[in-house]
Structures are given as C-alpha cells and as structure tokens.
Amino acid sequence: MAADRLKVGPIMCHAHGLCAELLPEMVRLDEWGYPILADGPVPPVLRSDARAAVAACPTLALRLRSD
C-alpha cells in the first residue's frame, strides 16, 4: 500500500491552523501560525485524523499525497 505523505501548499496556506488542532501529532505551528509538518509518511493510526485535517483546511492548502 502506498504511503501517504502530508504536503502543504505554501502559497495557499493562510495560517488558519486547523491542521495543528486536528493533527498535533504531525503538525506544529511556527511563531507566525504556519504549519511545520513532521517528516515521513502518515502512520496508519493517524490516517483518519490526517484526512480530517485535510478536509478541514479552510484554504485546501493541506493535501495527502501517496507516493
């Protein structure tokens, strides 16, 4: 099964910060409110949280990509 990775579109991202609320295990915010993503693929246990974070992103900047 392909491993899903989180990606944030840096231009699309407007620092709403929902990703860090919904997926704190993989997303922390810098001092200006922009997400810093953990390296590596999304572990299976976090997959549904990751999908929720992607769906909740107000600007659709957060994406899950399988590679």
Binding site: P10, I11, H14, A15, D30, E31, W32, G33, Y34
Partner: peptide
Amino acid sequence: GQCGPCMFGLPA
C-alpha cells in the same frame, strides 16, 4: 509575500 514563512520569517 506569498508564503508565510518567507513574508514573516525574513523580516523577523
């Protein structure tokens, strides 16, 4: 001025 880490990070 398109990406947050650049538009806020560089002035900081």
